[in-house]
């Protein structure tokens, strides 16, 4: 069966609800093309989401879906994956979902290492509730709840996930769409917890509050700030702020949870037979 990208998208739900210039639609398109490219059947794909602008992403996919509470997409996904090794499980989250209210689930999902792909479209603020600051809003930046500048420090999500034990960690941008597709395809194919951060933009709130000059200027700025890991590492320390490494940042072979649990089942069944 030849699969087309349109098989994965609910055409009747388009156009999507996101603002002009928002990056989320770019990510949805990339995910759909990757699923089609990998030939993963729609009925063997589960998308879990939480709350927030990107939490609406499941609406556009003609796959199985579980749209739940804020921050819990990975917790729902963990239950799905634990009992369904044959399904491709994607958790699509914004920065509020993945890193702020759901930060605890993120680090534990990375540590637990189930074969789930987490894709975070990180636009540095809560779009759906009116542009408040999140755990990825850079220090000093203005949002609707940090009008005098954000007093907190932001997470580097990729470093966080590497630190928590994630075996596949990548970062990309809505400008580098082909690279994004390649990384998402690799992430889905990776056996274990995989994490892709998309450095996105929210022209409506974050961009406006910080006078970043609209979607085109914001994407251009993201493009300028992005560089390969190798190039980034060569920058002197004082030059690093303002830039970020992209591409595959961390790859490590690890035995995923379900494989390990099959060993648990084997041991349990052996010891059960003995007794």
């Amino acid at each position: 069966m030849i699969v087309a990208v349109t098989d994965y998208l609910r055409q009747d739900k388009l156009p999507h609800l996101w603002c002009g210039g928002c990056s989320h639609g770019v990510v949805v398109g990339a995910v759909a093309r990757v699923l089609a490219g990998l030939g993963i059947p729609v009925d063997k794909t589960v998308i879990t989401t939480g709350i927030g602008c990107f939490g609406k992403a499941d609406d556009y996919f003609a796959t199985h879906a579980l749209h739940g509470t804020h921050g819990r997409a990975l917790a729902f996904a963990s239950g799905v994956k634990a009992v369904s090794d044959d399904l491709t499980v994607l958790a699509l989250m914004g920065d509020g979902d993945a890193a702020t209210i759901g930060g605890n689930h993120l680090i534990h999902a990375a540590r637990r290492n189930m074969d789930i792909t987490a894709i975070v479209s990180n636009n540095n603020n809560y779009g759906m509730t009116g542009g408040q600051y999140s755990a990825t809003t850079p220090s000093g930046k203005k949002t609707s709840t940090s009008r005098y500048g954000n007093p907190e420090t932001d997470f580097d999500l990729c470093s966080l996930v590497v630190g928590a034990g994630g075996g596949f960690v990548a970062r990309t941008t809505p400008f580098h769409v082909r690279a994004m597709e390649k990384l998402i395809a690799e992430a889905i194919s990776y056996r274990g917890f995989s994490f892709v951060e998309v450095v996105s933009c929210c022209p409506t709130y974050y961009g406006r509050y910080n006078r970043e000059g609209g979607a085109v200027a914001m994407v251009a700025s993201i493009k300028e700030r992005a560089m390969s890991k190798e190039k980034f590492n060569l920058l002197p320390l004082e030059a690093k702020p303002g830039y970020f490494p992209m591409g595959k940042l961390h790859l490590e072979e690890k035995i995923d949870f379900n494989t390990r649990y099959r060993e648990v089942q084997q041991k349990a069944q052996d010891s059960h037979r003995e007794s």
């Binding site: 579980l66 239950g79 634990a82 399904l87 605890n104």
Partner: peptide, 27 residues
């Protein structure tokens, strides 16, 4: 559960616990 071909997962908190059983039940 592992002797019955089932699965036990210890989650990070009770929010995640009930989320996970919802996910598994959907399967």
């Amino acid at each position: 559960l592992p002797t019955l071909g089932g699965c036990y997962v210890q989650m990070e908190d009770e929010i995640a616990s009930i989320a996970a059983i919802i996910g598994a039940s959907c399967c």
